[in-house]
Nucleic acid binder design. Structure first.
Lengths: 196, 196
DNA sequence: CAGTAGTGTTTACATTGTAAAATATACAGT
DNA sequence: ACTGTATATTTTACAATGTAAACACTACTG
């Protein structure tokens, strides 16, 4: 007797479109412009529409972050794993930095904005795990091949922290000492992975 | 004929107290609880009082950030510069990390929250410059003493990025691979500053 | 064709930042 | 002592936001 309920595909596609609209708004205006009413206007739907697909605004942002984390994980996985260990690590760092540079808004949403206890998301966790895994695998292979030395897990963390730190400082316009990002990245890699 | 205007001391002391109230609120509740009305309640004054001392809410937060940046700069400057270069660098890293750990709310306010185009503040710039200067001096002396090798400016940036990245990941609970912060920091320092 | 479950919109309200109006206060000049 | 006035503070008011609740619509089933 009832009307046809929304299929999972409908739900997913609306959530997707709505997140994308929110992201577009964030890129075009700024973070404060991302309001439920604003997104609805972009979508051409009523402001309350979203509440049938999301729990609340924070849920929208969490879903968007999940999408963006996934995009970051994908960018790293797109780096050909056939490269020699050291080149692979270099390329991973570049891919990570490229993502942050080409989509600074995305990176900021992932690492700079979210009020600490942002609700976690299975997809977010998964994408983050994928990111970690890619980086860890890379250092593990580096160590196994003998190109670099040390504990792989430890090296991976250091590697990750360095890239993340450098990107953060760059996006915060803190690299104002003459040495730009492009000079710093290879030097840092060198410093980290110089073999004995 | 007029009533006695506010002295600069009055202004400064109110601003100081108001910022401290905002910070207390942020620590006790969470970021969303930091509202003009909420701070006023803590201060025991009317909600509009602050607008004679600050331009707007963003100005309050900018002033608070300036204070906290100053505290961070001071924490680094409190490290005795009489230490041997390598120990000095280690101690600086510890001091930086301690600040972030003991006052995670402060660190988050400085590096994790602020919506990108947060209005800049002369005092903020100054404190940031002091932080940079302390770190740079430390690497410069390390290089001059021969304890570490490389370009000092470059090493300083790498050093900074690594600490910042590690702290960020730790505060974001991303160090879940068995290796905690305390294990990673010395190892990272080792990896960065191993002499040839 | 009528009933109904599920979809979408309208209305309404509490909370925010803050502008503007209203009020209180303390000093100067008489 | 008293009054006028420039400044300090509070009160009131309003637009914007997130979202709950009431309402209206729609398309299927009997």
């Amino acid at each position: 007797m009832p009307r046809k309920p929304l299929s999972q595909v409908d739900i997913d596609s609306f959530r997707d479109a709505y997140c994308e609209a929110a992201y577009a708004l964030y890129q075009r205006e700024d973070y404060d412009a991302v309001t439920m009413r604003g997104i609805a206007k972009v979508m051409g739907c009523s402001p309350m529409m979203a509440y049938r697909y999301f729990q609340n605004k924070e849920d929208v942002l969490a879903a968007l972050r999940a999408k963006l984390f996934d995009r970051l994980a994908q960018a790293l996985e797109d780096v050909p794993a056939t490269l020699a260990p050291l080149e692979y690590l270099q390329a991973l760092a570049r891919a990570y930095a490229n993502f942050a540079h080409e989509e600074p808004h995305a990176y900021r949403l992932l690492y700079v904005i979210h009020s600490h206890q942002a609700q976690t998301y299975p997809e977010t966790e998964l994408a983050q795990k994928r990111t970690r895994k890619t980086l860890f695998e890379a250092t593990r292979r580096g160590v196994e091949s003998g190109d670099i030395q040390g504990d792989p897990t430890l090296l991976a963390h250091t590697f990750w922290a360095c890239i993340h730190g450098l990107v953060s400082l760059d996006l915060a316009s803190q690299l104002t000492q003459g040495l730009g990002f492009d000079k710093l990245l290879p030097a840092m890699m060198n410093s980290l992975f110089k073999s004995a």
